[in-house]
């Protein structure tokens, strides 16, 4: 598995969807669950697969006709690394929210 060169908020959302969704998960469902455009999600899935974080396979549904759906799943190493990234992103997000909440209080305290 190759470490990701950059982790964008969209990457975190995709990793979150892959961690929380039913595995393996259909690519289009990742688009839907992240509410990110397919133009963001498709390249991220390709990058994750190319880096060995994710594997993909065709859906094995003999009842459905037409083109097959592609299902994605985190590898065991990928899942562990994804949990770390998501946890780091969430803690950063909480810290940012705390700063935003704290800033007006500090201004108010200074004014009084």
């Amino acid at each position: 598995m190759v470490p990701l060169s950059r982790v964008t908020p969209a990457t975190v959302d995709v990793l979150n969807a892959l961690l929380n969704g039913e595995a393996p998960i259909w690519g289009l469902l990742v688009v839907k669950q992240t509410s990110r455009p397919a133009g963001s999600v498709y390249p991220i899935l390709e990058r994750l697969e190319g880096s060995g974080w994710v594997t993909s396979e065709w859906e094995d549904d003999s009842e459905r006709t037409g083109p097959r759906r592609r299902l994605y799943e985190l590898t065991s190493d990928g899942a562990a690394a994804a949990r770390e990234i998501v946890a780091t992103a969430e803690s950063r997000s909480r810290a940012r929210v705390a700063r935003v909440v704290a800033a007006p209080n500090g201004i108010a305290a200074g004014a009084s």
Binding site: G27, L28, V31, P37, A38, Y42, G66, P67, R69, R70
Partner: peptide
């Protein structure tokens, strides 16, 4: 191509437009 086609056929069910799938394919 097969993956995009499958996504395109089901785009409406996922609340997306087929155009969104095309944009995703173009970005990829």
């Amino acid at each position: 191509l097969e993956e995009w086609r499958a996504d395109s056929f089901a785009a409406a069910d996922a609340g997306l437009r087929r155009r969104d799938i095309v944009r995703g394919a173009a970005a990829l």
